[in-house]
Amino acid sequence: KLCLVCSDEASGCHYGVLTCGSCKVFFKRAVEGQHNYLCAGRNDCIIDKIRRKNCPACRYRKCLQAGMNLEARKTK
């Protein structure tokens, strides 16, 4: 099974979405830290295992598009 954000090996369902541990922690920190990420490109950066750290804005956008939600952990 692959992470729906970066296509690395998924470690489980986190915040409602099948993700790897790295994307799970990234999403939690992004939401709780209330980061205002900005993409230096055109908001279409490739997010994969190798390049997932290059653009936090696009990675966060991809987390949201996949359906990640901090509240999902509280309902399970």
Rank of each mutant, 00 (worst) to 15 (best):
A72M: 13
Q65I: 08
H14E: 06
S22D: 15
H14A: 07
F27S: 02
A66W: 04
I47D: 07
C6R: 01
N54C: 05
H35I: 08
C58T: 01
I46R: 11
G41H: 09
F27I: 04
K74F: 15
L18W: 12
N69P: 04
G41L: 11
V17T: 15
E32G: 09
H35C: 06
A10M: 04
N54K: 15
N69R: 13
E32P: 03
L70S: 15
K49M: 11
K1I: 05
L2P: 03
Q65Y: 07
A10H: 04
A72W: 11
Y15E: 08
R73C: 11
E71G: 12
L64A: 05
L18G: 04
L2W: 08
Y15R: 05
K62R: 09
C3Q: 02
K76M: 11
L4D: 14
A66N: 11
S22T: 03
F27G: 00
K74N: 12
Y15L: 05
E9N: 15
C6H: 02
L4E: 14
R59A: 02
C58H: 02
L70P: 08
Q65V: 10
Q34G: 14
H14L: 06
A57L: 02
C63W: 00
K49G: 13
T19K: 01
N36C: 05
L18S: 14
R52V: 08
R61M: 12
T75G: 14
R51P: 05
K24Q: 14
R51C: 04
S7F: 09
C3F: 01
H14T: 05
K49V: 14
Q34P: 06
R59G: 01
R29H: 08
G16N: 12
K62I: 07
R51V: 08
K53M: 12
V25C: 14
R29S: 08
S11G: 07
D8Y: 03
K62S: 05
K76P: 13
L18N: 06
C45F: 02
T75E: 14
A10R: 03
Y15D: 09
S11D: 14
Y15F: 08
N69G: 09
I50H: 05
T19D: 00
N69K: 12
R73Y: 08
T19G: 03
G21K: 13
F27H: 01
G67D: 03
N43S: 09
V25Q: 13
K49P: 13
E71N: 11
F27K: 00
Q65L: 10
K53L: 11
R51Y: 05
V5Y: 02
C45M: 00
I50C: 07
L64C: 14
A66D: 03
E9L: 14
G33R: 09
I47A: 03
I50P: 15
L4V: 09
K74A: 10
P56N: 13
H14Q: 07
C3H: 01
I47F: 03
V25A: 14
L4T: 13
T19I: 08
D8G: 06
C20G: 01
L18D: 15
R59N: 01
A72T: 11
R52G: 11
G67L: 02
K74H: 14
A57K: 08
G12S: 08
Y37I: 07
P56W: 06
